[in-house]
């Protein structure tokens, strides 16, 4: 006798909730893209749009959070479903932080102004970082959707490149020279680089949640306080 499938409505709710949560990562990707383009083209209007549209990510965060609580209260998920719900709560927090980092960057841009000096190397570095970070965000979404632990672990490797570029930015900025405007711009770019690096870290955190959902083990891929272990 085949096993009987019941609680269709609950299954449907949980699936819809996960899709809704993961979709917010698409919003992050768009925000990252716009942020990078704003830096590249010094497009302050676009930067303002990033700030304004962060409301969408925040709104989704609040909505999914509320729906997750309702699901916990009304459907009492257990085992695998419970891990998914817990992981989604984490994930939404990470997504919200990723959006906030984009906002942080976007708010820095008007300070530098349209006519600020710039260093081609740093801009190139930041654009590369941006693309890498968008890849990380996309990959974290795919890893979660497909419950792919290997893909999730790969995020750590991908994030190493972001860390490396971040350190390079720092080095270049320190050696930028004596021009005051240039130094101000370069310092701002350090903050931008730092923010992008944080987005990458958040993507790695999402990867850790994938591992938790699949294996039930809750641990960090990479311990910042004990590197290399």
């Amino acid at each position: 006798m085949s096993r009987q499938q019941v609680r269709h409505e609950y299954e449907r709710q949980l699936e819809a909730l996960e899709a809704s949560a993961l979709e917010s990562l698409d919003f992050v990707v768009i925000a990252v893209d716009r942020t990078i383009e704003a830096i590249e083209h010094r497009d302050i209007e676009l930067a303002e749009l990033v700030v304004a549209d962060d409301d969408v990510i925040d709104g989704r965060y609040l909505e999914v959070h509320q729906r997750l609580l309702t699901l916990l209260a009304t459907q009492a998920p257990v085992a695998g479903d419970l891990r998914v719900v817990a992981a989604l709560l984490h994930l939404m927090k990470n997504v919200e932080r990723m959006g906030d980092q984009c906002v942080n960057i976007a708010k820095l841009l008007p300070i530098t102004g349209h006519e600020a000096p710039s260093d081609e190397k740093i801009v190139k570095n930041i654009v590369t970082m941006g693309r890498q970070v968008r890849t990380l965000a996309k990959q974290s979404k795919r890893a979660f959707a497909e419950r792919d632990v290997e893909l999730a672990r790969d995020l750590v490797r991908q994030d190493d490149l972001v860390d490396k570029l971040n350190r390079e930015c720092f080095q270049i900025a320190i050696a930028i020279g004596d021009d005051l405007d240039m130094r101000e711009w370069a310092t701002t770019m350090i903050l931008v680089s730092r923010a992008l690096e944080r987005i990458g870290d958040n993507a790695v955190d999402i990867g850790e949640q994938v591992a938790f959902v699949v294996t039930g083990l809750f641990r960090e891929f990479q311990d910042a306080s004990h590197p290399g272990e």
Binding site: L49, A52, D53, V56, E63, Q66
Partner: peptide, 18 residues
Amino acid sequence: ETRASPAFDLSGAVHGSD
């Protein structure tokens, strides 16, 4: 255009089915 695009429909995103 993006402001009005469906992916960014604030009303749909904030006020969900609940």
